[in-house]
Design a protein around this nucleic acid. Structure first.
Length: 278
DNA sequence: CGCATATCCTGACTGC
DNA sequence: TGCAGTCAGGATATGC
């Protein structure tokens, strides 16, 4: 379940190992991964291009190419973008796209559930961001997030706080896991109506957002038990060990010892401490 | 318009 | 032990 910290970890791996490399050839074996353009189009746009930059916004990666276009990648639920230095290494099951680079290494897109996708965007702004990603809201790590900003975002919304936190058009990069963790750290229940969040609470939520996301990036993301998430080197993240509420329904709260409550908010499983969070 | 729900998909887990 | 059924969720389309 890659969210902002996982995608940022992947971005950093790409930045270290792939920038400056040129695409020799690509092989597409999973049509759904390239559904936006099709295999032929992707091959035509990528072949002989050199990777020059790696930009992230929310959960999207945009890998800038030397002709001004960008390879856009979204991992969705189960996608992995691996940088395999030994091309002889066996293909993982559900490898849908292989991009062969001029140093003999390969970028491999692996995705059991096939929700993830990649395509090449022509319209890329000065900031390296494809124009169609402008619909995304504020990225808490790239842009920062203040209490005042968050208060404006939440004002007048009748839906639960968690719905706003995970709405990519408002704030980009937070998914189900980090939304619950942020609410716990801010001591606010995720099912509170956004409009009822008071200014001091908005400040706490904004600060918790920056702290949780940057700690998670430092820990190289969260890899759950069933998790597909791995970084470009195939390594797991460590932040799952520090989850306070996510996936801990029925277990004792690490702060107060009361059982963590599991509920469904807008169709998504959610966990919070009924004692620590108001 | 705003918010809720269904959909895509495979693998891990649950229960009989 | 085996197997059917359930759950997981990011983004988007559709429904109320």
């Amino acid at each position: 379940v890659p969210e902002l910290p996982e995608v940022e970890t992947v971005r950093r791996g790409i930045e270290r190992g792939v920038l400056g490399r040129t695409v020799r050839s690509i092989a597409v074996t999973g049509a759904r991964t390239v559904r936006r353009q099709g295999a032929d189009e992707l091959r035509a746009r990528l072949t002989d291009r050199r990777f020059e930059s790696a930009v992230r916004r929310g959960k999207y990666l945009a890998l800038g190419l030397d002709d001004g276009s960008a390879l856009v990648v979204h991992l969705r639920m189960s996608g992995q973008l691996l940088h395999v230095t030994d091309a002889g290494q066996a293909m993982a099951p559900h490898t849908h796209v292989v991009v062969r680079l001029d140093d003999g290494s390969e970028l491999r897109f692996v995705d059991p559930r096939t929700f993830g996708e990649m395509y090449v965007s022509d319209e890329v702004g000065e900031d390296g961001l494809p124009v169609e990603l402008a619909r995304l809201g504020v990225d808490p790590i790239v842009d920062g997030l203040t209490g005042a900003q968050l208060a404006r975002i939440l004002a007048g919304r009748r839906s639960p706080l968690k719905v706003a936190l995970t709405d990519q058009r408002l704030i980009a990069g937070i998914g189900n896991i980090y939304a619950d963790e942020i609410c716990f750290r801010a001591r606010v229940r995720p099912d509170r109506r956004s409009a009822t969040i008071e200014r001091p609470e908005a400040t706490r939520i904004a600060k918790a957002t920056l702290k949780i996301l940057s700690d998670a990036i430092e820990a190289r993301g969260s890899s759950l038990r069933d998790a597909r998430y791995r970084d470009v080197s195939g390594d797991l993240g460590n932040y799952q060990d520090r989850h306070a509420v996510y996936g801990r329904a029925g277990l004792a709260c690490r702060r107060c010892g009361n059982p963590i409550v599991g509920v469904r908010i807008s169709g998504r499983s959610s966990c919070y401490c009924g004692h620590c969070q108001r």
